[in-house]
Amino acid sequence: MMIDLNDKVALVTGAASAGGLGFATAKKMAEQGARIFLTDIDETSVLERAEDLQKMGFEARAMAHDVTDEAAWKDVMGSVINTYGKLDILVNNAGIAVLGMIKDITKADWDKQLKVNLDSVYLGCKAGLDQMSQQGNGGSIINLSSVAGLIGVPGTAAYAASKGGVRLFTKSIALEYAAENIRVNSVHPGMIWTDMQKVAIADNKEQYDLITAAIPMKRMGEPEDIGSMIAFLASDDAKYITGAEFVVDGGMVAQ
């Protein structure tokens, strides 16, 4: 099945890392014909990612963006509309992982985790839904959650709370906007071989072996695996899908 995103305009947050989920998603959607607007708090790197897409022959722009700042969302949305005239797809990908056992998680840690991973999705959805509603042509919003938003994982209490929140927030607003044909779904990656994952495991081969042994498919996923799922949900092939959750994890949560 060839996914068709021709004439679609997509905004992807957290897209500065060349080996991350955001950029993999942006590239996959660009390959299917979408025009891409990338954002990240790391301005230098996200501008480089837009240049990467341009060198591949795709239409792409980028700008700095603090996803926890409501005013910044207004600026970004204004830039998207000024550049492309509309917004069809929003991917709320930006996030961080504050890991640690609950006894070691400070209130500041907790607040930072929820602010970046959950407040940002609320702000992004508010901005995206308002724009799509004004346009009156429907749209697709994809929020990045995690398998940690579905099952308990020791040492992820704050992270899991944020990702579990994303899951049910997504379902609630999907129902609120279903009649307007604005679809809202969540994607739940398992262990994915991103730049962040590579750094974490570089000096600990034993940890990598233990992790992969626990995955039924016996390997980590690639960022493109997530990008492909998101591109599908962004497309008209998924026109009857909303309020749903999609797990891309090599079978982890099926155990």
Rank of each mutant, 00 (worst) to 15 (best):
A72Y: 12
T170F: 04
A97E: 03
N93Q: 02
D119E: 09
M196Y: 01
G95M: 00
S186C: 09
G136R: 14
G152P: 08
Q113E: 11
Y84M: 05
V153K: 04
W193T: 09
Q134I: 13
A174W: 12
L168N: 15
R167C: 08
S162D: 00
F169V: 07
K103V: 07
G190M: 09
E176D: 15
N93H: 02
M132N: 03
H188A: 05
V147T: 15
S145F: 06
L144W: 02
S162G: 06
V153H: 07
S145D: 05
A158M: 10
G95I: 01
Y177S: 12
N117D: 02
L118H: 13
M196F: 09
K163P: 03
V166N: 00
P154N: 14
T83L: 08
D75E: 15
A94K: 04
G138I: 03
S146N: 06
E176M: 12
A160Q: 11
D130L: 15
K74S: 14
L123N: 10
Y84G: 04
A72T: 10
I173Q: 13
M101Y: 12
S79L: 13
T156W: 10
G139E: 07
Y177C: 11
D104Q: 14
A148G: 13
S146V: 07
T170Y: 06
T83N: 06
G164N: 11
K74I: 12
Q135V: 10
K163D: 03
G165Q: 08
T194I: 01
D109I: 01
I173N: 09
L123Q: 07
Q135A: 14
L144G: 03
N82H: 10
G149E: 07
S146L: 07
G100L: 01
A127W: 09
W73L: 05
G155W: 07
V91P: 03
N92C: 04
K74L: 14
P189H: 05
I151M: 15
G139N: 05
Y159V: 03
I141V: 03
Q113M: 08
A161C: 10
A179H: 15
V184W: 00
V91R: 01
